[in-house]
Computed example of a mutant assay.
Amino acid sequence: MDRPRLVVGISGASGFQYGLKALQLLRAVGGVEVHLVLSKGAEMTRAMETAITRDEVQALADVVHPVQNLGASISSGSFRTLGMLVAPCSMRSLAAMAQGLGDNLLTRAADVVLKERRRLVLMVREAPLNLAHLDNMRRVTEMGGVIFPPVPAFYAQPQTVDDIVTHSVARALDLFGIDVPALPRWDGGRMAHQGPAESPGSVGRCQ
């Protein structure tokens, strides 16, 4: 493949901003072919939690796959990718992944990533957690997935909600080897920026 590919899934958990920020950061960094799939629940949270339109979200991806299209390229292991980021990941989607239930394209794509031993990163969003949630997280972890709750990193001294969202998503992208230059990094008691000294939320702020 000419460019590395990454699948971005957005499910119906609260926190559509995490998926949106992932798309914005990937577009700003460049060099990665982004394949996007949104669940039906994600469409609802987009309308409830943001002012961005569906077309504006889809314009940030290179390829958009309908969630009902189980014949899409990302449903096959022969379609090579770096893996898949699900941001946010609902407990419903997590449960389907934990049980190998590929009942829509988002969960099928995740199942493909697991079976091909690629990187699956789930920004799970729920609180408090019941035993079923925790057990499903354990099952996915045992299959090789990474459970990545978007926990704020206050050592970065965030000034806005967007700073918090950006830092969490940039750290998740780190797990795929995708470097976000604006990400502040801990360096022995002081923060170090890999790129120009700028706010971690300065790349593609959510509106």
Rank of each mutant, 00 (worst) to 15 (best):
G83K: 12
G83A: 10
G83E: 13
M84F: 09
M84E: 13
L85P: 09
L85A: 08
L85D: 05
L85E: 03
L85M: 09
L85W: 12
V86R: 11
V86P: 08
V86D: 11
V86T: 12
A87E: 07
A87K: 06
P88G: 08
C89W: 13
C89K: 12
S90E: 01
S90G: 04
S90P: 01
S90Y: 01
M91P: 00
M91L: 14
R92W: 00
L94P: 02
L94N: 03
L94V: 07
A95P: 01
A96Y: 11
A96Q: 13
A96G: 00
A96L: 14
A96P: 00
M97K: 03
M97V: 15
M97W: 15
A98F: 10
A98S: 15
Q99S: 13
Q99R: 15
Q99H: 15
Q99C: 09
Q99W: 06
G100M: 06
G100R: 08
L101S: 10
L101F: 12
L101G: 00
L101V: 09
L101I: 12
G102R: 05
G102Y: 10
G102A: 08
G102K: 05
D103E: 11
D103N: 11
N104W: 05
N104A: 02
N104L: 02
L105D: 00
L105P: 00
L106Y: 06
L106D: 01
L106A: 02
L106K: 02
L106S: 02
T107Q: 04
T107H: 07
T107Y: 07
T107F: 04
R108A: 01
R108T: 03
R108S: 02
A109E: 03
A109H: 03
A109P: 00
A110N: 06
A110L: 06
A110I: 02
A110T: 02
D111L: 06
D111E: 14
D111K: 09
D111S: 14
V112E: 09
V112C: 04
V112K: 09
V112F: 12
V113Q: 10
V113E: 10
V113R: 10
V113A: 12
L114R: 10
L114F: 10
L114V: 09
L114K: 11
K115H: 07
K115T: 04
K115A: 00
K115Y: 00
E116W: 07
E116N: 11
R117C: 05
R117I: 03
R117W: 02
R117D: 07
R117G: 04
R118H: 14
R118L: 15
R118F: 07
R118C: 05
R118S: 14
R118D: 14
